[in-house]
Amino acid sequence: MAGSLSNPHRETLRDAHGQVIGYLDHLHAPGMILIRDAHSNLLGSYDPRLNETRDASSNLIGSSNLLALLLGRSR
């Protein structure tokens, strides 16, 4: 995925029981958001400049932020 992981802001995603289900890494410079599963495996990214969500293989998922769909696929 494009962008550097230097100094991202990480947001932890938890289910209703408090279990970690994934992470969002907000990359400051390019503005991209990466989504990772609970084991930190990359699932995909959202590029707000292009308004596109792509999976870890760079396949287009769709327009707008659809990262939650990728997290649902991994579970």
Rank of each mutant, 00 (worst) to 15 (best):
P30G: 03
G22K: 03
Q19P: 10
D55M: 05
M1T: 11
M32G: 01
L42G: 11
D37E: 08
I21G: 02
L71G: 01
D15S: 01
N7H: 13
L67F: 05
L27K: 04
H28N: 07
L43Q: 12
H28E: 13
P30C: 03
H26E: 11
H17R: 13
N41P: 10
I61W: 03
Q19I: 05
H28P: 08
L60N: 00
G72D: 11
G3K: 09
A29L: 10
T53K: 08
G44F: 12
R54M: 02
L5P: 06
L69G: 11
I35W: 06
R75C: 00
D25Y: 04
H39N: 14
P30E: 08
H28W: 08
S63Y: 12
S4F: 11
L50T: 14
I61D: 06
E11T: 01
R36N: 10
R75T: 06
P48K: 01
R73E: 04
R10P: 00
G44M: 12
T12S: 02
S63C: 09
M32L: 05
R73C: 04
S40T: 14
L66C: 04
M32K: 07
S63F: 13
E11Y: 03
T12R: 07
D25A: 05
S58F: 07
N7T: 06
S6I: 12
S64A: 14
